[in-house]
Simulated assay, not measured.
Amino acid sequence: MAQTGQFELSPVTVTEDPARRLTQLVAGLLLFGTSMAMMSRSRLGLNPWDVLHEGLMEKTGLTFGSVTVVTAVLVLLAWIPLRQRPGIGTAANVVLIAVSVDLVRLVLPDQHVLAWQIALLLGGIVLNGLATALYVGARFGPGPRDGLMTGLSARTGRSVRLVRTLIEVCVLAAGWLLGGTVGVGTVLFALAIGPLTQLFLPYVVWRRRS
C-alpha cells in the first residue's frame, strides 16, 4: 500500500476522466491554500510547515505564498538524490497553493476576537482535510513535502509514520525558532488532519472502473 501522510491509498491505476480529475486537483489545491490562510489569520497556531513559512516570512519580508514557493523548490531539490519523480500535481501544488494563500490573506485580516479566531482555526483545519483528500484523490502526483516523506522512507527503510514525524518535528522547531506561531491550533491540526483526510478520501479518490 502506498501511504501519504497519515492515510493510505491502494495502488490503483487511474486513466479515466482526466478533465474532471484535473478540476478536482485545482479545486483541492486552491482550497488547501485557503485553509492555510484561515489558520494563519486565526493566530492560534499553524501546522508545522506553516510555522516554518510564517517564521521565514517574518525574517525575509516575503509574502506567505512566496515563502511556500521557495521552501517547495528547496524540497524538490532534495528529491533528486531520492530519485523521486514529480507529476503534474507536484508543479500545480507549488504554484496554486502559493497564489491562493496570498490572495485569501489579502482579503482576510488577522482576527483578535476569540470567537472568530476559533471559527477560522476549526474551519481551516476541516477545510485542509477536505482539500488534501481532493488533491491526493485526483492522483496527479505527490506534493513536494509528501514526496520528500515517501522518498526518505523508501531510501532509509523507515516507516512513513516515523519519517513524517521526524520531518515535522524538525520543521516545527526551525519555524518556532524563527518566530512562527505555535499554539493550540498546531496540536489540533496534528491530531485531526489524518482522521479528517481519511474521512473525506473515500468520497473523492479516483479509481479505475471495472
Rank of each mutant, 00 (worst) to 15 (best):
Q117S: 14
I118V: 15
I118M: 03
I118A: 11
I118D: 03
A119F: 05
L121N: 05
L121G: 09
L122W: 04
G123V: 06
G124D: 01
I125P: 07
I125N: 09
I125F: 04
V126L: 10
L127F: 03
L127P: 06
N128W: 00
N128C: 11
G129E: 08
G129L: 07
L130W: 05
T132M: 08
T132V: 03
A133K: 00
A133M: 10
L134F: 02
Y135C: 00
Y135W: 07
V136W: 04
V136F: 08
V136I: 09
G137R: 04
G137P: 06
A138I: 08
A138T: 05
A138S: 10
R139G: 01
R139L: 04
R139W: 01
F140A: 03
P142R: 09
P142Y: 11
P142V: 07
P142S: 09
R145W: 09
R145A: 02
R145F: 02
R145G: 04
D146C: 00
D146G: 02
G147E: 08
G147H: 05
L148D: 04
M149V: 03
M149C: 01
T150V: 07
T150W: 04
G151M: 01
G151I: 10
G151W: 01
G151C: 00
L152D: 03
S153N: 08
S153D: 02
T156H: 05
G157I: 14
G157V: 15
R158L: 15
R158G: 03
S159R: 12
V160C: 06
V160H: 12
R161W: 07
R161F: 09
L162V: 08
L162H: 11
V163F: 09
R164H: 11
I167N: 15
I167S: 13
I167Y: 09
E168I: 03
E168W: 13
V169A: 12
V169C: 11
V169D: 10
C170M: 14
V171Q: 06
V171N: 10
L172F: 14
L172K: 12
A173N: 07
A173Y: 13
A174S: 15
A174N: 14
A174G: 13
G175N: 10
G175V: 15
W176A: 14
W176P: 07
L177A: 15
L177D: 13
L177Q: 15
G179C: 10
G179R: 05
G180N: 10
G180D: 10
V182Y: 14
V184P: 12
V184K: 06
V184G: 01
G185A: 12
G185M: 05
T186P: 13
T186Q: 13
V187M: 06
L188N: 00
L188H: 01
F189T: 02
A190S: 14
A190P: 01
A190M: 03
A190D: 02
L191M: 11
L191C: 07
A192N: 08
A192M: 14
G194M: 02
L196M: 06
T197N: 07
T197P: 01
Q198C: 01
L199K: 00
F200W: 07
F200V: 10
L201K: 11
L201T: 03
P202E: 11
V204N: 02
